[in-house]
């Protein structure tokens, strides 16, 4: 494998082919230089637009800098961090975020897997069904948020209208403390169930048919087949989808912004939304940076978990 490569690079001058390529400077580029030349522009962009800003945020998180007040920032060291970690407000947002992430991802997983399972059992119209189910996922959160806001409107929303014609009472979906977070979970579930479905479907169609055939020869029951063949084979892929969704749900901002703006009160304020309020409405840039860095740490832990499972999946 490596032999022909080293041969050609050892004798770059030996050009005996019928189509001698024009000699140029690029010929003298060794593989190592070519790799550096090809990779470094992309890495430089990432360093400038992702790493450097985060390092700056890290620096700001140790100061009391404010974007509007301007002036020199004084170091407060871990003051911002201790303030955030001790704040009851932040604890409340962390709880809201936890309820939202766990609720939404659990609902999506159950629904998405069920739909994928039902589709995988069909022989006809699979492609069409999959395509139709995938529509919500491709929409922008802005479009999704706006549209559900209209449908969930207490006065002239279509959901309440349908409830009314069924003889049920009206629900203030987005303007009541108890229902707002639930509505947010429902809307997120509507948008992202297709994501879980898509990945579960990929896992389900990859299960070898002969396993089921062998099981049916053994007269294994449906539930037994599901438990011992389907689930163990699809689970690793499903876990990746779940982790991916958990990270995305944890970062979520746009849907909250459009749908409820954190309200009523602070009942739908997630950590992301709270960071935004501290940074852009309170202009406590230092505090917001510390807050953001703490969120980044959580995301890094989740991402490591995700990548570890991904690695495991690839090695199998």
């Amino acid at each position: 494998m490596s032999d022909p490569v080293s041969l050609t690079t050892d004798r770059p001058g030996q050009v005996a082919s019928t189509t001698p390529p024009a000699p140029g400077r690029s010929r003298h580029l060794s593989d190592r230089w070519l790799a550096v030349l090809f990779i470094s522009p992309a890495l430089l962009l990432l360093l400038a637009m992702s790493v450097f800003p985060l390092l700056w945020a890290l620096y700001l998180s140790f100061t009391d800098y404010s974007a509007t007040r301007g002036g020199p920032a004084t170091f407060v060291w871990f003051g911002n961090y201790t303030a955030i970690l001790a704040s009851a407000q932040v604890h409340l947002r962390a709880l809201t975020t936890l309820i939202y992430v766990v609720g939404a991802v659990a609902l999506q997983t159950v629904l998405g897997f069920s739909i994928a399972y039902l589709i995988s059992r069909r022989t006809h119209g699979r492609g069409l069904l999959t395509t139709l189910f995938l529509v919500p996922m491709m929409l922008s959160p802005v479009v999704v948020g706006l549209f559900w806001r209209f449908m969930l409107d207490a006065q002239f929303g279509v959901i309440n209208s349908m409830l009314g014609s069924l003889g049920l009472g009206q629900v203030e979906w987005l303007t009541r403390q108890q229902t707002a977070l639930f509505s947010l979970i429902v809307v997120d579930t509507w948008q992202w169930t297709p994501f879980i479905m898509l990945i579960a479907l990929a896992g389900l169609t990859a299960v070898p048919k002969y396993l089921y055939e062998a099981a049916s020869i053994d007269r294994a029951s449906e539930w037994f087949r599901f438990r011992t063949i389907t689930l163990p084979l699809v689970w690793p892929l499903l876990l990746i989808a779940v982790l991916f969704r958990a990270i995305e749900a944890f970062r979520l901002f746009d849907l909250v912004y459009i749908l409820t703006s954190g309200g009523p009160g602070v009942s739908t304020e997630t950590l992301s939304f709270h960071v935004y309020k501290v940074a852009f409405l309170g202009f406590n840039t230092g505090t917001a940076s510390a807050y953001g860095i703490l969120m980044v740490l959580i995301v890094i832990v989740l991402t490591q978990l995700y990548l570890r499972y991904l690695n495991k999946l690839k090695e199998d």
């Binding site: 985060l54 953001g292 980044v296």
Partner: peptide, 30 residues
């Protein structure tokens, strides 16, 4: 090519994509 610490580099690259936008936007704004 065999790049030094290829796996780590690739994982680092992907993890920049997972940063919460609301957090990144604060220093980017400044």
């Amino acid at each position: 090519f065999s790049v030094k610490a290829k796996k780590d580099q690739l994982f680092f690259i992907l993890s920049t994509r997972f940063m919460p936008p609301v957090v990144v936007v604060i220093p980017i704004f400044l």
